[in-house]
Nucleic acid binder design. Structure first.
Lengths: 339, 339
DNA sequence: CCCTGTCGTGAGAGCGCTCTCTCGGGACGC
DNA sequence: GCGTCCCGAGAGAGCGCTCTCACGACAGGG
């Protein structure tokens, strides 16, 4: 047995506080947990004893009896490279979740489940009820895990509609945002509008492509599609592909700012001026979008709010309160110089 | 009392497994925890019972008796805006920490301690021994928290040397990286080399400025300094300031890629060509650095490895094993087009 | 043949907390 | 004045696990 720190200055227990305050353990517990059925002067005495001893409740002991852990897990099932590219989606979600949990005085347990082993680990952990609920950030395809947990009675919430519709989710209005972007290009008189779509096994990728296609077809234009995976590199590659196949294109809607950035580089290399020759609109409105050359016109999505709403949903779900099956947040077209 | 999920399908306990396998609780515990003093056939029977019942140990109960929580906290004490700018430092650290913890089968509890309240919350949580150890990502100034925890016997490790030197830390070779960058500019014949420094209450900011100053002064050149806070916007502002004060400058070392990116925009607006008129070198080598116009020459630091090393240090510390007071990781000059 | 040593297993005592149940005492009604 | 009700506080039983200690079985030496 490897020993812990040497200075394990015996932490005071409920018992110690009770003795000092001259009351029973039960009463101290009542005061600590905010029960009102304790006489004012006794509450005062207990609080003083708590302060003097520097008492902090042992969470493990509490969890053992209450069956609540007061912590929730945030699962990031993506491949590591994507999770931590600089699209700021995941940091944004973490931040939103964190804010909301702090308000609820709960802890955030972060789990990256990129590998198959990691995936299994997450399942074990959640099924083992080591957390009160689970948040899934951006699923790939029809991941069965949320459904499995939901069936096991473990509260779970996704960002983005799960393909099997097994759990409540929070998402943004992809279609609305994209159609506004495409309409903006059409209004500006663009004739040959292409798209760099996101991965088609993710809801965000699917919906943004659908929004593009619908709007364009409704206006009587043919869709011109290349598919990327939301990364810069894939955007650069897709752009080259589009230029080869449709040299006459005069606008591009990229399903992420990162892909738009990659496309920008390809356009520059190909000698096309933006926005004169080719207009380009991205999606996300990450911080970098204002710093590209030219600054990027893009569809803003409220990322932090996604995290916050997911957390609220989960907490209500865990508390057995009624909830909406879905929360859809608005998107907004931010016009800069690239279109 | 708000109820949990309705399907609280009573989880099997050690007791249940023991009954099923026809042995005592103690024996099941031994098998589950990998003790070798159990006869092979009994181990087999226990393992079968565990599998059949889908037994998962209750962590709270285990923690209560072992006093270990098998989870560690990662504290991000920065203002939220900075933590989640796209410099990828924090995501990188999270990823490194996460990898290493996964290998050790421990959980990551993420805490953002931007506000004063959050700061206090972290202290309570760690002092309450709800985690086996604490990792601090990038401290601002002489934060007393690591020292407080260390004195309370709670293992703690920082990224970047704490100003009060209270706990072990992991850092990169700022001085070496910067001096290589500046030497590169000097070798290229640059005469008026300025710097955009980072915040001077952070070790990274201080050391990078020192590295610049030392190298330049040693070569007989005067230092030209503007200070930013590692963000793009501050880089843009600092660049303008430098151009105003030293219109004849022909090179800039920026203490972060983000600031270099901001500076690039200012230079473009000012009509200076990069690298012909002004060479620029950044620091970090974030993904975006390869996509700026022109692609950024920069000093690469191994961010993920920082997270990994911090975790290793912490785990050894918590296990009472001997450790180094500091681990310094190498940096590397990545030459692209901006210098 | 008995004593000692070794090894594998079981019994049982908690870890620190919450929560139900019980009980004492004061207010109130008849 | 006595019985009833209610409210506030304490006693005590666990929550599920680990770990120490005791014990039985067997081997080997005297």
């Amino acid at each position: 047995m490897v020993g812990g720190g040497m200075t394990t200055a015996q932490r005071p227990t409920l018992e110690a506080v009770a003795r000092r305050a001259g009351v029973s353990r039960a009463t101290v517990s009542r005061v600590v947990n905010g029960s009102t059925t304790v006489a004012e002067d006794i509450q005062e005495a207990v609080r003083r004893a708590v302060a003097e001893l520097g008492y902090v409740p042992n969470l493990a002991a509490r969890t053992l009896v209450t069956q609540r852990t007061d912590s929730i897990a945030l699962i990031m099932p993506e491949a590591a490279t994507r999770v931590f590219s600089d699209d700021q989606v995941f940091p944004g979600i973490i931040q939103g979740v964190s804010q909301e949990l702090e308000a609820a005085d709960k802890q955030l347990v972060l789990m990256l489940a990129g590998s198959a082993a990691g995936h299994h680990r997450v399942e074990r952990y959640a099924l083992g009820r080591h957390v009160d609920g689970v948040l899934f950030a951006s699923l790939h395809g029809a991941d069965p895990l949320p459904g499995t947990l939901a069936r096991a009675g473990i509260p779970a919430v996704c960002s983005g509609r799960p393909l099997d519709d097994s759990v409540p989710y929070v998402d943004v209005d992809h279609l609305g945002g994209v159609s506004r972007a495409v309409a903006y290009l059409l209004d500006a008189g663009r004739q040959r509008i292409a798209t760099i779509a996101g991965p088609q096994d993710m809801v965000a990728g699917i919906e943004r492509l659908a929004g593009y296609r619908d709007t364009l077809v409704a206006a009587g234009h043919p869709p011109l599609v290349a598919v990327g995976d939301f990364t810069r590199e894939s955007g650069a590659v897709a752009m080259r592909q589009l230029l080869d196949q449709h040299p006459d294109l005069d606008a591009v809607f990229a399903a992420s700012d990162l892909m738009a950035h990659g496309a920008l580089r390809t356009l520059r290399e190909a000698g096309r001026r933006v926005p004169e020759d080719v207009a380009i609109i991205g999606f996300d409105d990450i911080e970098m979008a204002a710093y590209t050359d030219p600054p990027l016109t893009t569809v803003r999505q409220p990322i932090r709010q996604i995290g916050r709403e997911m957390t609220r949903l989960l907490l209500r779900l865990a508390a057995g309160q009624p909830i909406d099956r879905a929360v859809i947040l608005p998107t907004e077209l931010i016009v800069r110089d690239s279109a």
